[in-house]
């Protein structure tokens, strides 16, 4: 699915250059559920941003579905992203002005999908995360767990091949956190590749492989039995 070769990401300010990722090599196969762990500032989010094509590496290669994408421009990356990748964030990032239904529908609006089909797919996605009964509510009328379920529905409604989750349970209590992890496991079982950044060891246990980062480098990889 994706392969990172000697990937480097450095941030430069006026005086200081900080290396967030230092020669990272990672290979994620189709259908894998990978958890990335590490202390704050180790480069987890930088890695996820590059994998999600929200950012580009300073050097190294990024192969996605057999295509080297590290030198692609914003327009091309936006196109690949739109067709292949779904995102889940710690802070849900729902749009306050849109209802639950509209928030999920947003992910299909840039895909040239007819309105009728959009409606069906949104409803199916909401049912899948058990939030269909709140489709006309606004985000601020929902609990944190409910909001994250909406965010998951939005992430999967366009049927992405890969789902990137950035601490998806970070803002949730344990019951809601477990619920979200079960949903991700189900999605993975249905064939979606998942890359998840987390601080929670119990939640990392849901993944098939755990990659540990420290100071921008991969320091350990633990393959878990599926």
């Amino acid at each position: 699915m994706l392969k990172l070769v000697d990937l480097v990401k450095a941030y430069r300010t006026e005086e200081v250059e900080t290396t967030a990722l230092n020669s990272v090599n990672i290979h994620v196969r189709n259908g894998e559920f990978v958890a990335i762990m590490g202390p704050s500032g180790c480069g987890k989010s930088s890695l996820l941003n590059i994998v999600g094509m929200l950012d580009t590496p300073s050097s190294g290669e990024y192969w996605f579905n057999g295509e080297e994408v590290s030198k692609y421009g914003e327009r091309k990356l936006a196109d690949i992203r739109k067709k292949n990748i779904g995102f889940i964030f710690q802070s849900f990032n729902l749009i306050d002005e849109l209802t639950v239904f509209e928030n999920v529908e947003l992910a299909l609006l840039y895909h040239d999908i007819p309105a009728r089909e959009r409606k069906e797919r949104v409803k199916a996605a909401l049912e899948k995360v058990n939030i269909g009964h709140r489709e006309s509510h606004l985000p601020q009328q929902l609990s944190g767990g409910q909001q994250q379920r909406v965010a998951i529905a939005r992430a999967v409604v366009a049927k992405p091949k890969m789902l990137l989750a950035d601490e998806p349970t970070g803002n949730l209590d344990s019951a809601n956190g477990d619920e979200v992890m079960r949903m991700l496991t189900d999605l993975n079982a249905e064939g979606t590749t998942i890359v998840m950044v987390t601080h929670s060891m119990p939640h990392a246990q849901y993944a098939t492989r755990i990659i540990n980062l420290f100071d921008g480098q991969v320091v350990a990889e633990n393959l878990r039995a599926a």
Binding site: R81, N93, L94, E97, L106, Y110, H111, R154
Partner: peptide, 16 residues
């Protein structure tokens, strides 16, 4: 900002 970013994440181009 968040709206714009979410739109970008789900595939909106800058032109859109």
């Amino acid at each position: 900002a968040r709206e714009v970013s979410v739109r970008k994440v789900v595939g909106a181009s800058r032109g859109q």
